[in-house]
Each structure stands twice: as structure tokens, then as C-alpha cells.
Computed example of a mutant assay.
Amino acid sequence: MTDNVPVKAAQTSFQIINELRRMEGAGVSELAAALDKPTSTIHDHLRTLEEEEYLVKSDGEYYIGTRFLGIGEQARARQKVYSIARQEVDDLAKETGEHTNLMIEEHGRGVFLYKSRGPDAVQLDTHAGMRVPLQTTALGKSMLAFRPREEVDDIIDRHGLPQVTDKTITDREELYEKLDEIHERGYAYDDEERVKGMRCVAAPITNDEMRAIAAISVSGPKSRMRGKEFQEDIPDKILSSANVIEVNLTYS
């Protein structure tokens, strides 16, 4: 029986792709050392991936190719919430002047599906396709708060609660308490839990069963995200946008 047995050659190819992304390009020897695999094995995989146009080679180093753009865009376009929420995310960025994001959950991680920058937004590392631990963001916590506790347990068992900053929630019981608060309040806060100096407010986008299928957020510097703006004004705007998206999802 071969059920549930990973294909090692395929695993190696994806390990190479992920490592190239992390290293932002590398040579054969560098990749072999990083992955602790024979140089000949890495070379064969690299040549195959290059021939299939998933990688490009320049000055002896390999890089992720643009063929992945088409794959990623097709995956994003398949998400109904993306096409419906995009305008609301853009409008929210213009109204607040800050970063706004749309996130979904996939394989137990938060995936940024779309982002928009307002005129006052600072530079951040987020981009479409970026995957993060769910409990490190207001977006992720807002989705977890509107998922069954058994599902949250499964995600934690699979991925743990990795620490990103000194304010990241890493304790299961503390997270449960926060999720109960978020569920009652309807939105979530992130106070420097993924990025130092940044705060975020997020609300879930739920279906008819009140299960979170996505989330939207506004994030900005701690110096601007404070007081009534942070505690009332931005949450009200996000809840309003989430409601519009939910209605459009229901009747589209």
C-alpha cells in the first residue's frame, strides 16, 4: 500500500523552491548545504525545474521564475471572496490612509490574499501569498474566534504557537481567552504581535453559519493607531466593510 506515502522526489523539488524563495536565489552548492542533500541530487532537480520554466538561472544562481505568477493569480481568482472584497479593501485604505489586508486560512495558516496601501501607509513585509501563523495577527485571531474550538485545537497541534515578537501569544489557554473576547466583541486587535511598532484591527468575514471564511484588517504605526481611533473609529469602519462583503457574498 502506498496511501499517504509522500513522493520524495516531489518533496525535494518543493523544498528547493521554498528554499530559493527564502534565500532569494542561490547556487547548487548553497542549496545542497542548506537542504543537507547531495549536490548531484540538487543539480538534477534544478535543471528539471529550469527546463519546465519554473526557475531561471543567472550568473550561476537559480531564482524563482515568473511562471509562478500565473499559478498564483489563478489560485487567487478562484477565491470568490477576493473578487468581492477587493473594492472594499481599497476603499478602506483610502478612508483610513493605512494598510488594509484580506486574509484567508489555508492548511492551518493565514494567507494574505490581497493588500492595499493608503496614502499614509508605511512599508511592511506583507504581500499576496505570504503565509503566517494565525495567532500572530489580528486577521488570523478573528478567523480562529469564529471557528469551532476543535478546529482551533487541530491547527495548534499541527503548527504550534510560534513566537514572532515578545508580544506574540504562545500559550494555548491565553489564546482561548482572547478568542472568546474576540467572538463576543466581533473584531480582533494585534498590538505588536507580529511586527514591532505596528498595531492592527481586524474583523472576520463569515458565512451563513457564522463561520469565518476570511478576514479584513487595517494596520498602522502604534503612534497613529491609538486612543479613540484605535478603539472605536477603525473597528467601526472594518465591521461595516466586513458586513458589506458578507452581504455581497450571500447575494452574488
Rank of each mutant, 00 (worst) to 15 (best):
E174I: 07
S241A: 15
V201P: 03
L134R: 05
L239C: 15
F230E: 00
I156V: 15
S142V: 06
T126Q: 07
E184H: 08
A212H: 02
P235H: 02
H159A: 03
K196L: 13
E229M: 00
A128Y: 05
E232R: 07
R211E: 15
Q123G: 01
I182T: 08
L139R: 00
R172S: 00
G160Y: 11
I205G: 07
V132F: 12
P133E: 09
V218R: 03
D236Y: 03
R211T: 15
A214L: 05
P235L: 06
A145T: 07
D166Y: 14
T168R: 04
D120W: 14
D233I: 03
A214E: 06
R199C: 02
I213D: 07
I182V: 12
T136K: 00
V164E: 11
E151D: 12
D191W: 03
K178C: 06
L175R: 01
G186Q: 09
D180Y: 04
Y187F: 15
K178W: 10
V195W: 13
S240R: 13
S142C: 06
A145G: 06
I156E: 05
P148H: 02
P204T: 12
D191P: 00
I216H: 03
F146Q: 05
P162R: 11
R199G: 04
P204W: 13
K196Y: 15
N243E: 11
E192K: 07
K167N: 14
I169D: 12
N243I: 02
H183N: 10
Y187W: 14
M198S: 00
D190M: 09
T165R: 08
K141F: 01
E177G: 05
G140K: 04
E193D: 04
P235F: 02
K196P: 01
E151K: 14
I216G: 05
D125K: 12
S240E: 14
P162I: 15
D208I: 07
I234Q: 10
S223D: 05
V195I: 15
R199W: 10
I238V: 14
K141M: 06
S241R: 11
A128S: 12
R224M: 10
A128D: 10
A215T: 02
Q231R: 13
K167Y: 15
Q135C: 10
K167V: 07
C200D: 00
D154P: 07
V195H: 09
V195G: 01
E184A: 08
D180C: 01
T126E: 08
R147G: 02
P204N: 11
K196N: 10
L239E: 14
S240L: 09
Y189E: 00
A242I: 07
L239V: 08
V132H: 09
V195R: 07
A242N: 08
A214I: 03
P119T: 14
D153F: 12
L161T: 09
Y187S: 04
P119G: 08
M143S: 06
V152T: 15
D191Q: 04
M210K: 08
I169N: 10
E150D: 13
G227A: 01
L134P: 03
P148Y: 06
G227H: 00
S217G: 03
H183K: 12
A203E: 05
S240H: 13
